[in-house]
Structures are given as structure tokens and as C-alpha cells.
Design a protein around this nucleic acid. Structure first.
Length: 440
DNA sequence: AAGCAGAGGTAAGGTCTC
DNA sequence: CCAAGAGACCTTACCTCT
């Protein structure tokens, strides 16, 4: 999370101790309960029990909700009646729900659902924009509360962390329950928010355990609970098995983690590849020795935006060009603000049919300069077909280095990199888009 | 001249997570 | 007709160097 840095530097012993601690390793996964919604409810207690939909993050939603239809500038929640949907559509356009309160969920509204669909399902819902500053404030608050008690903590997004209980005083008592209770209470005292905690021999099981007793629950899992508590679960409960792998497993007749564990490792490797297959086999047996990592370096930084309407490279080139430049500048700002430079600049396009194309280019020098990024990204744009209309444009910086700590670039002979036309153009528009691309 | 093997880099697409 | 944004990581393919 932004601005949340672990107080203690990485403990190199985390790894080294692992064998010695093998038998008593206790890892916790902590998940804030309905975090975004709960943060809003702290501000608007009168919304408790009402269907509330939180989302968007899109500028226009914020405008509407911050100013209100009367433009009074007050940030008050609104009731948006069904007859105002056209108005809503103008504003929420293509936004999605970040989260919804339980009363709203009863109408079938859920995370990542389109705003308009949510409005149709639950017209009486109250819509709130995500207040990211407030969410971040609470994120920092609960994380620092944890670290005051148990310093080995790994960030897993705004509302989730892993904590290594192994060497924390009291971390072993009742399998971790005592420490979990202490953390839970401390977080509630400081923030007024509840969370759910799972404690297990490793991160994999802790993550699943934290879901067992929601909200405001604690769940303790031991190695010997594998058969009774883990194997009956659906494979989708495994962190890392998403919709695609879940579907494929279902087609192969594998629904539960127990069924997955019953499969032959070679057979899994045959269907999912060597590494994924082996991983699936491993996790289905509850095995995971990955350490709780207290600090990590970013791998990439990106900015992307979905347009209010699909844009065409030719017809809307001015608008597109402005957005493109803005994205590049924002990536540059992000790099500078965080003190990084990048060597690889890439773009991402989503066409009106939702197909995605990416291109990137690794330069010979590191940069955090907006104009340079814009120039490199512009080169990438020339290598992508621009005949279809676009709904999203993104700019990404990777191969990062801390400013001033750039690795010396081995001046390898024949350092290719430069504009060598690469195989396959997937219909690379040659002359046709030539004029178009050059406009960027 | 051609071929193989392994390592490491680069590129493109895809999956998953919150 | 509807489907955000940011980031990590994986797979595959291809390239170069040794």
C-alpha cells in the first residue's frame, strides 16, 4: 500500500529459521470485513442496514456525488431513483461497483458489476463514490496497529495482510488464537472496524482459514485439519485458482480440493503445465513454505483509463492524443514521486470488442521523464493495429530501478533492442495506419 | 556450415488478485 | 447489451551469446 512501509527492515532470519520453526510455524491472514463499505458507514452511520453501492472511482461519479445534483458541494449520499437512471448513466457511464453492503448484495449486486446493472437490480440503492484517501488512512491505521504487536507483516492490498506469528510472544498460544484476539481487539479500538483472522501453519491455509468465520471471526487451522476443513472446499477457494482454472478443473471432473489432491501429479502437469500442475498438487495437500515477506520492490507502474465512449484512432485522434500524453505524464509523475526510473515502456489497448493488445519496448537507458516516456510509448503505438475503435488506453513502465541505483547496462555487443521489426504483426497495419500512427 | 544445449533477455498474451 | 484500475506472475516464443 502506498505510504505504508514496514517499520522493521526485512528480517533475513525469516527464511533461515524456517527449518527450525517448521513444526511450529504459525502464519495469520487478516482480512478487514467489508472494508470499503465499513469505512463509509463510519462516516454515515445512518446508512447502516440500507442497501449501499460503492464504486466508480470515475471522475464524473465523484462529481455527481460530491456536488450533488444541486451542485451544493456537499458530500452527502444520494438516493438515485430509477427515473434518474439516464442521469446516472451520463455520470457512471462505464463504471463498476467496488463493493456493496450486505442489504444491497441481497439484490444480487456485487463487486466488479457494472454500475448500470447494479442500479437496475437495486434501484433504491444509495450510491457513494470510493473515498480512497479515507480508505488509505484506515489501511495505514490498521496495519500500523498490527505491526506494533507483530512486526513481521506482509502487505496484500489495502484490506489484507499476512502476519508471521511464529516468533511473536504468545503467538503459539492456542494455535495463535490469543494473539489473533489481541490484534482484532486492538484494531477495533483504534479504527472501530472489525476483521477476520485465520491462523494456520502457512499462508495458503491461513488465507482460506480467514474466510471460515466472517465477519469478526477467528479460525485456527492445524496441519491435521486438512482433510476435514480444507478438502471439502471448492478448488476456487485456493488463492491462485481463478475462473479459468476453475472451469477447466470442473470440465475434468475436479470440484473440491480433496478431489484435486486425489489426482496424479503427472496428470495435472499434463493438463496445466509443469509448474502450475505441480503447484496445484502441492497446494491441494496444504503445502506451502513461502515466507511472509515484509518488503518488496515494485515491478511495474501503470496508468490506464477507459474512455467515456469508444474512440477511433483517426476520428478522435486529438482526444486520444491528449489522453495518451496525460497517461504518460502520470506514469512519469508516479515514477518520480516514488523515486524510480524505468527502462521498459509499454502500452495497452482494449478494443471495442474487449480484445486486448499490448506492446512494449526496452530502451537502453532508464528514464522517468514524461516526454521520453511519451516518445517511447508513441513508438509502441505504431506497432499495433488501430483500425478498430478503442475503449481503453494504458501506459506502463517496467524494468524498474531506484533512481541513482540503476544497474550498469552491460554494453553487450549487438545489443539489439532498437526498432528491429519483430515477427508477426497480427494484421499490422502498414501503410493504412501509417498516417494515423504518426499523428501520435 | 550446421546443429545442439542452456542461460538470460525481450516481447506478447493471459490469468489472477484486491 | 454490459464488463475499472493497478499490479504481480506465468507461459510461450523468439532471440543472442556461449
Amino acid at each position: 500500500m502506498d505510504g505504508v512501509t514496514n517499520a522493521s527492515p526485512a528480517l533475513p532470519c525469516a527464511n533461515i529459521d524456517a527449518p527450525a520453526a517448521a513444526g511450529r510455524r504459525r502464519i495469520a491472514h487478516l482480512d478487514m470485513d467489508a472494508f470499503f463499505a465499513s469505512v463509509e458507514l463510519l462516516r454515515y452511520p445512518q446508512l447502516k442496514g440500507l442497501p449501499v453501492v460503492i464504486g466508480g472511482g470515475r471522475r464524473k461519479v465523484d462529481e455527481l456525488l460530491l456536488q450533488g445534483p444541486d451542485g451544493n458541494g456537499l458530500r452527502e449520499p444520494h438516493f438515485i431513483p430509477v427515473e434518474d437512471f439516464p442521469l446516472l448513466k451520463d455520470y457512471v457511464g462505464r463504471g463498476v461497483i467496488t463493493t456493496a453492503t450486505y442489504p444491497a448484495r441481497q439484490f444480487g449486486v456485487g463487486s466488479a458489476m457494472g454500475m448500470m446493472k447494479a442500479a437496475r437490480l437495486c434501484p433504491q440503492a444509495i450510491v457513494l463514490p470510493v473515498d480512497f484517501d479515507e480508505v488509505r488512512r484506515f489501511s495505514r491505521l490498521f496495519k500500523s496497529t498490527i505491526m506494533d504487536i507483530a512486526p513481521v507483516m506482509q502487505d496484500r492490498g489495502v484490506d489484507e495482510v499476512y502476519v508471521d506469528f511464529t516468533d511473536v510472544p504468545g503467538g503459539q498460544r492456542e494455535g495463535g488464537r490469543v494473539l489473533a484476539r489481541l490484534i482484532q481487539k486492538s484494531i477495533f479500538d483504534v479504527t472501530g472496524l472489525t476483521c477476520s483472522i485465520g491462523v494456520a501453519p502457512n499462508r495458503l491455509l491461513a488465507k482460506m482459514a480467514s474466510e471460515f468465520n466472517k465477519p469478526n471471526g477467528i479460525s485456527i487451522v492445524y496441519e491435521e485439519d486438512l482433510q476435514s476443513k480444507i478438502w471439502p472446499l471448492h478448488v476456487r477457494k485456493i488463492n491462485g485458482i481463478g475462473p479459468k482454472a476453475g472451469e477447466k478443473l470442473a470440465r475434468l471432473g475436479v470440484e473440491t480440493i480433496g478431489q484435486l489432491a486425489a489426482q496424479d501429479e503427472q496428470w495435472l502437469m499434463g493438463h496445466f503445465g509443469k509448474s502450475t500442475g505441480a503447484w496445484m498438487h502441492r497446494v491441494s495437500w496444504g503445502r506451502d513454505d513461502s515466507p511472509v515477506v515484509t518488503e518488496s520492490e515494485p515491478v511495474s507502474m501503470s496508468r490506464e483509463t477507459t474512455f467515456d465512449r469508444d474512440l477511433h484512432a483517426v476520428r478522435d485522434r486529438a482526444e486520444l492524443g491528449a489522453i495518451f500524453t496525460d497517461l504518460c505524464m502520470r506514469v512519469a509523475e508516479d515514477l518520480k514521486r516514488k523515486g524510480y526510473v524505468a527502462r521498459t515502456i509499454g502500452i495497452k489497448l482494449r478494443y471495442d470488442d474487449f480484445k486486448i493488445a499490448t506492446r512494449d519496448h526496452t530502451a537502453s537507458m532508464y528514464t522517468a521523464d514524461g516526454a521520453t516516456i511519451r516518445q517511447l510509448a508513441g513508438q509502441c503505438l505504431k506497432r499495433v493495429p488501430l483500425d478498430k475503435r478503442l475503449r481503453l488506453l494504458g501506459v506502463r513502465a517496467s524494468t524498474l530501478a531506484r533512481l541513482g541505483e540503476e544497474p550498469a547496462l552491460a554494453p553487450r555487443a549487438g545489443a539489439q533492442a532498437d526498432a528491429r521489426p519483430r515477427r508477426q504483426g497480427v494484421g499490422d497495419v502498414e501503410g493504412g495506419s501509417g498516417g494515423t500512427a504518426s499523428l501520435f
